[in-house]
């Protein structure tokens, strides 16, 4: 019957997919595009640091200690050990971005998996995972990060690990709530009624509808992660000196705040700018994804 009535499958109106529409809307958001440009620029700076940086970020000189911004040969001055600030800020982008994004990315994968499973399966599994999740909520994220880092010892890896642990619960919570909403929708019921198994339903009908909101939420955590990572370094729990990292730089320069306030503020400005940029991109994504016809 079907073979007899062959309809040519070419030449038909195909609407742009959801993500194509989101991308188009996002690209029209001037603020978000500007923020995205900043982030891309920071990435390029981080990647090409050796080619851009005018000096060795680790090489200090007692003679140049705390030179102000604008000193000839030292466009952004020098830090308390006489190291070139501009070069340190450029190299600092590497670790700072890495510490901001990596924990969130790992937590995104783990947290979404936990949350989606809990939200879709519901029942006892949901109660157990989400109540366990809630225990982490009892601690303020800063304290939790400090406590974990303290227990694991200083260093990049332990900082990374403790931040990841800090971000899993909030992401899982968001994933669970979005999934619970989607699970109750009729199209999931209809898919069940068609005889699809849970795995297929999650793959085809749930993921596409929940990953977007979870992703947006996670991008907004990147700024938090950067600030927490900076905080850990500041306390001496994250990156160890003499590695250039913005948070650590802020720490080591804190004594100079009375002598060279502008110089001491520079790493803070970088952290602030980057986290704002990530937040703006996240906001832009959120509104671009909110398609209500």
């Amino acid at each position: 019957m079907i073979e007899q009535k062959t309809i040519p499958l070419d030449e038909y109106t195909r609407s742009p997919s959801y993500w194509a529409i989101v991308l188009r809307r996002f690209s029209r958001d001037k603020v978000a595009m500007f923020a995205l440009a900043i982030i891309i620029l920071l990435f390029l700076v981080a990647v090409f640091a050796p080619y851009i940086a005018p000096a060795d970020p680790l090489k200090g000189s007692m003679l140049r200690r705390l030179r102000p911004i604008g000193t000839p040969g030292l466009p952004l001055g020098a830090d308390e050990l006489g190291r070139d600030m501009l070069s340190r800020l450029i190299y600092g982008a590497r670790l700072s971005l890495f510490m901001g994004i990596t924990p969130v990315a790992i937590a995104f994968v783990i947290g979404s998996s936990i949350g989606i499973a809990a939200g879709y399966l519901g029942g006892l599994f949901n109660s157990l995972t989400m109540r366990t999740n809630d225990i982490f909520y009892a601690f303020p994220s800063v304290l939790l990060a400090i406590a974990l880092s303290g227990a694991l010892g200083a260093g990049v890896t332990s900082g990374l690990l403790s931040l990841t642990i800090v971000f899993i619960p909030p992401i899982a919570r968001v994933a669970e709530s979005v999934t619970t909403q989607v699970r109750k929708l009729d199209y999931v019921e209809a898919a069940k009624a068609s005889g699809a198994n849970n795995f297929t339903i999650i793959r085809v009908h749930v993921l596409g509808n929940v990953l977007g909101p979870i992703f947006v939420y996670s991008t907004s955590l990147i700024s938090v992660s950067m600030i927490l990572a900076a905080g850990l370094s500041f306390l001496g729990l994250g990156v160890k000196p003499p590695e250039p990292e913005w948070g650590l730089m802020l720490n080591t320069l804190r004594n100079a705040i009375y002598v060279q306030p502008w110089l001491a503020a520079l790493p803070g400005v970088m952290i602030f700018m980057t986290s704002i940029a990530f937040n703006l991109v996240s906001d832009g994504l959120r509104s671009a994804m909110d398609i209500k016809s």
């Binding site: 195909r14 959801y18 009729d186 085809v204």
Partner: peptide
């Protein structure tokens, strides 16, 4: 179902 919109996956053609 009753709700024609909720019963279609918005991400699928």
């Amino acid at each position: 179902f009753q709700d024609s919109y909720a019963s279609l996956n918005p991400r699928l053609t």
